[in-house]
Amino acid sequence: MTTTPSISGTELTHPQTQALLLKLTVLADDEIILAHRNGEWTGHAPILEEDIALANIAQDELGHAGLYLSLAQTLGGSDPDRVAFWRGPDDYRNTRLVELPKGDWAFTMVRQFLYDTAEALWLEAATRSTYAPLAEIAAKAVREEKFHVQHTALWVERLALGTPESERRTQAALTELWPYAAQLFQPVEGEAELTAAGILPDLNAVHARWTDLVTRHLVDKCGLTLPDAPTTQPGRDTHTEHLAPLLEEMQSVARQHPDAEVW
């Protein structure tokens, strides 16, 4: 069986390499698309301080995408800029959760909370990966995610326990987003083998911890109601109508200047 030597000396089989490449790509795709949605708030957030905060969060998420795609590149993946700016909606593998329009502040904060908690728990588990390069980037990224969680958890709590209007908007956001959030825990093809080898976290275990964590915050602390989540839903190759216009805008500069080297 062919193997891909890694920078740490860990050897992956060919099927493992392909599955890991796919996993790193879907993780990066979620980060890129959510970062763009958050970037749409720049200049429009409720106050200057939150404008800066959300831009920080967006930059952190893009940084994580960079980590994932750089690791993917060592496994035979394409240049990260090519991956981000030259694939269309048919090739993106982000969840529908992150591509939905940014909505109001409650929608953005609830989505970010659901996402940050999932990412923080996944990354924490990934720091124990038997594949050292993944464990390293997880250790780096998880620190920022833990801070994001504090920020978004605070906002969700303030909004849910704020005025009748903020409570209504927060519940509406959760009702809409909750079914989409379950998709964060859909495994990619070949993921089971990577989990069995200790290379990737056990997604079901992360899902259980996430459900417990967000239920405690959203229901017990914030008094919100969780709707039912669908038991099955389409995979990451199915998108809403919102992804194509997002990519068109996000990729427009890169595509107009394909030879640009310095930004």
Binding site: I47, L48, E49, A53, Q150, H151, L154, R158
Partner: peptide, 20 residues
Amino acid sequence: SVHAGDPPHALLTARNVFVR
């Protein structure tokens, strides 16, 4: 300085604005 609604919020926004 930052504007914030309560002490924890002040610390979070301060971190974002001044120590990224």
